[in-house]
């Protein structure tokens, strides 16, 4: 077992309105700890010293719920590719390291406290069309819809998105294109998604833009930061669908309208 001494610089902000600041905390960590377990250790020390612990979102701690997310040394979820902060382990650091921890920053992700940000804009993007309109009970037999294996696999590649927001955090423009494109692509590649394909992309893009995310200028930082390695190929597909849908849309249908 190897112990390492680290110096953390952590963004502390008491409330959405408060002016935040970086505070420095020393910590002793074990190489087998997860990054969040290391923060737990810091927090135990803070509580003992009478300082409020660092607030950070986390839940499953196995890389799938998408709750956790923070900038670790300038990188969303830290230095290891395809790894969420909760699955990042301290063996990725070495004794004596300084680690800078900041919240994900974007106008559409306002800070609530410390490292906790409000990502409800993502839910609203899904509300604008990120679904198949099928009521409970109305489905045909599962095998009545044939899906080529390769398409199912590619849809799955996109559907793996955990909605953590690392794409937005890493993008110099704070664009939510990868998140939106992952959902658009997931459903666009499946037969089930075809009937609403155009209306979906129009509605979701409109919502995405209205949430105050920046536009995509093809930096590809999102793809590099994505813990699920979702490809920007999905963004290209969404662009294509959006262009087609925009040109074909008839005025009376009204993009983004929702019905039961």
């Amino acid at each position: 077992m190897s112990t390492m001494r680290l110096t953390l610089k952590v963004w502390r902000q008491a409330s959405p309105e408060a002016k935040g600041e970086f505070r420095t905390y020393p910590v002793e960590a074990d190489e087998h700890m997860s990054f969040l377990e290391m923060l737990d250790v810091v927090n135990e020390g803070l509580i003992a010293a009478g300082e409020e612990p660092i607030a950070f979102d986390h839940d499953c701690r196995e890389g799938i719920c998408g709750s956790c997310g923070m900038m670790i040394n300038g990188k969303a979820h830290g230095p290891r590719a395809a790894t969420t902060a909760c699955q990042l382990h301290m063996r990725s650091f070495k004794d004596g390291d300084h680690i800078l921890i900041e919240p994900f920053r974007a106008s559409a992700f306002p800070v609530i406290r410390d490292l906790v940000v409000d990502r409800s804009s993502f839910d609203r993007i899904i509300q604008a069309g990120g679904y198949v309109s099928v009521g409970t009970g109305a489905a045909p037999d599962g095998n009545a819809i044939l899906v080529p294996k390769e398409m199912a696999e590619r849809a799955m590649d996109a559907a793996q998105c955990i909605g953590c927001g690392a794409c937005v955090a890493a993008c110099p423009n704070a664009s939510a294109m990868l998140f939106t494109a992952a959902k658009v692509s997931h459903l666009a590649m499946l037969p089930q998604g075809q009937p609403e394909r155009h209306r979906r992309v129009l509605g979701m893009v409109e919502q995405m833009d209205s949430e105050g995310f920046g536009g995509c200028t093809n930096f590809a930082e999102c793809e590099a930061a994505c813990p699920k390695q979702i490809s920007i190929e999905n963004i290209a597909r969404m662009n294509r669908d959006f262009l087609k849908a925009s040109l074909r849309e008839r005025e009376e249908t009204g993009a983004g309208a929702v019905s039961n």
């Binding site: 970086f22 930082e221 590099a224």
Partner: peptide
């Protein structure tokens, strides 16, 4: 950001 690493762009 105080520090924003941009490895991909």
């Amino acid at each position: 950001y105080r520090d924003h690493d941009r490895p991909a762009s």
